[in-house]
Design a protein around this nucleic acid. Structure first.
Length: 215
DNA sequence: ATCCCGAGGG
DNA sequence: CCCTCTGGAT
């Protein structure tokens, strides 16, 4: 059974190892060929499955082949293409605005810090962390809905606000492990530790989980 | 009905 | 803190 005396750091270390076994490769499931494409795909992923984002970006990245193409794009036309992803008016404005600002203020290079990335329209800390981690291979904590839910269930954190979850996880995760850990948590959340109906009976982390058998 | 790898504005 | 943006899958 779960050891109630485990510290959060010990629990985190155990979760890191178990998830490595479950998901040897920590894959980002958003298809892309360039950093700015990953940035746009991540913006599209809000309230939308990655599978659908990948269907839409296949058409989108074929229609607009460069940052310059996006910067000059008609927002309504972009909105028409990305409609199935939801929130399409805001997202369309953001995609065009992101590329315009990248060209104007960053010489067409996607910035490598959270502080600069969140200055781009529609880019918050979740998206910024994903870019910092996946493109620049720096320590990142990608606080998507899965990470927040599972971190609370496991007992790694005791807060819901994305910013606080990020800060608490930074304190207990080895920096070199945090990015892959976040990717694995997403897969774990889809497969086992689901929002509703978590499959505790077949969960490999039940023995280190604060909520095992209580959901 | 509720959820999906959110962000911005009030 | 709250609300809104939004379509699609379950």
């Amino acid at each position: 059974m779960e050891d109630v005396n485990m510290t959060k750091k010990q629990r985190a270390a155990a979760a890191v190892e178990k998830l490595k076994q479950l998901y040897p490769e920590a894959i980002c499931s958003l298809k892309h060929t360039k950093p700015y494409e990953l940035l746009l795909a991540t913006r599209l992923s809000a309230q939308c499955t990655d599978a659908r984002v990948n269907i839409v970006t296949k058409t989108l990245f074929d229609r607009y082949r460069s940052m310059e193409d996006f910067a000059a794009a008609d927002v309504d036309e972009v909105a028409g293409i990305i409609r199935p992803c939801g929130l399409f008016k805001t997202k369309a404005k953001d995609l065009v605005g992101i590329c315009q600002k990248l060209l104007l203020d960053y010489n067409g290079v996607v910035p490598d810090t959270i502080e600069e990335l969140i200055k781009l329209p529609g880019v918050g800390r979740k998206t910024a962390n994903l870019i910092v981690g996946d493109v620049y291979h720096k320590p990142a904590v990608v606080t998507d809905t899965h990470l927040i839910r599972i971190s609370n269930r496991l007992g790694l954190v005791d807060v819901k606000e994305p910013r606080k979850v990020e800060d608490q996880l930074r304190k207990i995760l080895p920096p070199e492990e945090s990015n892959d850990f976040c990717h694995r948590m997403v897969h774990f959340g889809r497969d086992t530790c689901r929002a509703r109906g978590p499959r505790c009976g077949e969960c490999a982390l039940a023995d280190i989980c604060k909520s095992a058998g209580k959901l």
